[in-house]
Design a binder for these strands. Structure first.
Length: 202
DNA sequence: GCGACAG
DNA sequence: ATCTTGTCGC
């Protein structure tokens, strides 16, 4: 008689995931960061925090962390729960210096982190298959730095790369688990909406 | 030297 | 990032 095999319990050690995002007001120079922690199994909100500040650094491709980190750190410090993983808006290792926003955020917090970007950056890539879960490698100088991942059938893919203390397979699986219905992970969708809403409400 | 370039 | 409502399509 054989033991009963449990259905794949995706990443049992990851119960919560936090989405991070920053919205800006080009006129006033105000920046609002939002961090939203979701329960991975139910995708319900566990905690949501925000922080506002002044833009202190211009947008320079490759130096995004210097622009977003200050206000993002302020928001992260307001969390009362510690998420199991941080999902950043942008790149991790698939960066010209191999150290994008997700790497900075991970090292500063000491938490596992990875990035999910919406558009290609400096890495080379091939078009992944049309199905949800199909992916192709993101490469630079012959190194695999991330994946172009299709989260929804026949929908433009996202760009996943490791930031800190997570491997690419896990980052890929988490991205899919967080995107059951839309192109972007629920974590980033929530963080994006919250930061944008707070920015507008003033 | 020129172009491309996360948010 | 941001400018921005309704609308075409499954």
């Amino acid at each position: 008689m054989r033991e009963r095999v449990e259905p794949a319990a995706p990443l049992p050690l990851v119960r919560t995931a936090a989405g991070l995002d920053v919205s800006y007001d080009g006129e006033t120079g105000r920046a609002v960061a939002a961090v939203v922690v979701l329960d991975l199994a139910t995708l319900t909100v566990v905690e949501a925090v925000t922080a506002a500040g002044e833009v202190s650094f211009p947008y320079v491709p490759g130096l995004l962390a210097f622009r977003e980190l200050p206000v993002l750190v302020d928001a992260l410090e307001r969390l009362t729960v510690t998420p199991d993983v941080l999902v950043c808006d942008g790149y991790g290792m698939a960066h010209p210096r191999r150290f994008g926003l997700a790497c900075h955020v991970g090292v500063l917090t000491g938490l596992p982190a990875f990035g999910v970007a919406k558009t290609p950056f400096t890495s080379a890539h091939a078009e992944p298959g049309p199905g949800r879960g199909d992916w192709s490698p993101l490469t630079e100088d012959g190194e695999v730095l991330g994946r172009v991942l299709r989260t929804q059938p026949k929908v433009k893919p996202v760009f996943v790369s490791v930031g800190h203390r997570v491997d690419l397979d896990t980052a890929t699986a988490l991205t899919l688990a967080l995107s059951p219905r839309f192109r972007l992970p629920e974590t980033t969708r929530h963080a994006d909406q919250l930061s944008r809403r707070l920015l507008a409400a003033r």
